[in-house]
Write a protein that binds this DNA or RNA. Structure first.
Lengths: 155, 155
DNA sequence: ATTAGTGCAAATTGTTTGCATGTTT
DNA sequence: AAACATGCAAACAATTTGCACTAAT
């Protein structure tokens, strides 16, 4: 974990930015919530717990910076807010998402399932792919089981 | 085209909504710009050309309604605005998009390239897929050709 | 008459910006 | 002191809402 911070620090430096205390606090929150899909506001509140002086604008600026450096990906699931998702280290491509329309959960698929599809797209549409976004909307395994077994809170 | 309007009218009726003149004007604009990815504001301005009395709020409400009825899909390419994309009639799944990071163009792929991927996701993640969003970011064939042949405006 | 739908303006929300202040070299 | 970074408040932009009015059954 420390090394993760260290490596992000390198990335910032090589783009001639500094890892200020505020930026570090923000990065740490992102690392501690790697599984989540936090909005800027979410990040702000979490950072504030440990570093109460931080301003929302700084969080926005930091997230923008990290997006630019491809440390995080800015995503949008259709509710009004942008969410920020830490890239797995060394991940060639952005992971996929499963959004449950029942419970709102968002799970991640790390495996790259698009290799074949991308080959087709590159060839047939002559499109040089740099990145992708793939999100499935549906019913997650948790809600699915609920449907079958117990209908406790069905209404 | 007329029949398209007619069928959307049916859909509205069966959900007990009416096809008011404002709604019809909005639907017609969407039909006339099927290839585009219009924002609410875009739609508003286009509708206004023919029906100057219409209000922006009505356009928003109509687009929301059409989204709910799955006549259109609300999409978001990461710039700050929602865009509205008419579903192809009878399309089982939402089409895919190619967003060019050079020229900003957005092309559509109507073919469903995800059948195999979806089978894997449904089986391995026990996730019942209802819909998907797939967008590739990269260089479109137009900008690609530019790179190879003439570097007129390369800087 | 009742209900659904509209237009306008005001309100709300997420995000960005200007600027005076603080920090680091 | 120069350059960069921060916090705050104000500005902004997209979208939503309240409400008086209209249209249609």
């Amino acid at each position: 974990m420390e090394s993760r911070v260290e490596r992000i620090k390198q990335q910032l430096h090589s783009a001639s930015y500094k890892l200020t205390p505020q930026r570090e606090a923000t990065v740490r929150v992102l690392l501690e919530h790697e599984e989540d899909h936090l909005s800027a506001e979410d990040v702000y509140l979490l950072v504030k717990e440990k570093s109460p002086e931080i301003g929302l604008a700084t969080v926005y600026r930091t997230l923008e910076l990290l997006t630019e450096l491809k440390v995080v990906d800015k995503i949008n699931f259709g509710d009004g807010v942008s969410r920020y998702d830490l890239r797995k280290e060394g991940a060639a491509h952005f992971h996929h998402h499963l959004v449950c329309i029942e419970c709102g959960s968002v799970d991640e698929i790390q495996e790259d399932l698009l290799e074949d599809v991308e080959e087709i797209v590159e060839k047939q549409w002559k499109f040089k792919i740099k990145d992708h976004r793939l999100t499935f909307h549906g019913i997650c395994y948790r809600c699915h089981d609920d449907d079958d077994q117990n209908n406790d809170d069905a209404n």
